[in-house]
Amino acid sequence: MEIRETVSISHSSVMESASHRRARRRREFLIEGALLLAALVSVAATITILFVLVFESVGFFETVPLLDFLTDTLWTPLFDDPHYGILPLLAGTIVTSVVGLVVAIPVGTVSAVYLSEFASARLREIIKPVLEMLGAVPTVVYGYFALLVVTPALQWIWPELPGFNMLGPGVVIGIMILPLVISLSEDAMRAVPMMLREGSYAMGATRLQTAWRVVVPAATSGIVAAYVLGISRAVGETMVVAIAAGQNPNLTWNPMEPAATITAYIVQVALGDLPHGSIGYQSIFAAGLVLAVMTFAFNIVGHLMRKRFREVY
């Protein structure tokens, strides 16, 4: 829309030959079409993924009643006596994610406040690229970091902690999403108008008071968005949990125990050679659908929160 408007303005002010105009129109039509196509590709990809998930899950739910899926406390699709309760995997996903968030949210928020409100420009210029590098480390590396460094370190504190557990990978997930949380929260805080800070300082507030009482509340929408994206990543994280949490579906809320998550199960099963169309094969789509629904729900919540806090300035 806007493009067209500017065009028509230049149109009236500068004379243009008819052929020229036609050529320009054609060019613009092509560009617009190309842009639309690019946008459609991502929409199409999303729709296709959802379609495949739902389609394969339908086959799954023809065999497994939805009620069993949601209430059974065992997940053993590949056993002779199969059970298809999603709860153990869901619990694993929730526990590792919550551990990750317990690490990432406080540490991330405090670091972002420090970077945005206290650090000198030079320090910030050093730290930000380092954070981005952390974000670029392959997740497999994080997985072995959890297994070989973090869990042994935790065992030093709690000797009874098993070699595979949810605590270690949870902590590592937290470390992994930290750069994202810090970077987005810091951006949100830096976007708070200087005017608000000045208002606070003028009242005699210290830097710390200004940061916590004015800047953070003013940046709430962006900070919440950072958390939500962090949650989505934690819930979807695969390699760390597949490597370091053990791969036994285990209905427990205790992070000291080993367990499998939805993603760990999917990667485990997908790597084996399951016959196409078998119930085991279909189960990964049902699990994937649950994951998709969860992430989707978080995004909606994040969106609503954003809207709620939008009118701040």
Binding site: P193, G199, A202, Q209, R213, V214, P217, V312
Partner: peptide, 27 residues
């Protein structure tokens, strides 16, 4: 702490009316 300032553009904090006025006291 002894002076107060009002700016060219109103800059209320993203807080309630009450908390805006109470800000200096809380600080």
């Amino acid at each position: 702490m002894r002076l107060a300032m009002v700016f060219q553009k109103p800059n209320p904090f993203p807080k309630s009316v009450y908390e805006n006025v109470a800000y200096g006291l809380r600080v």
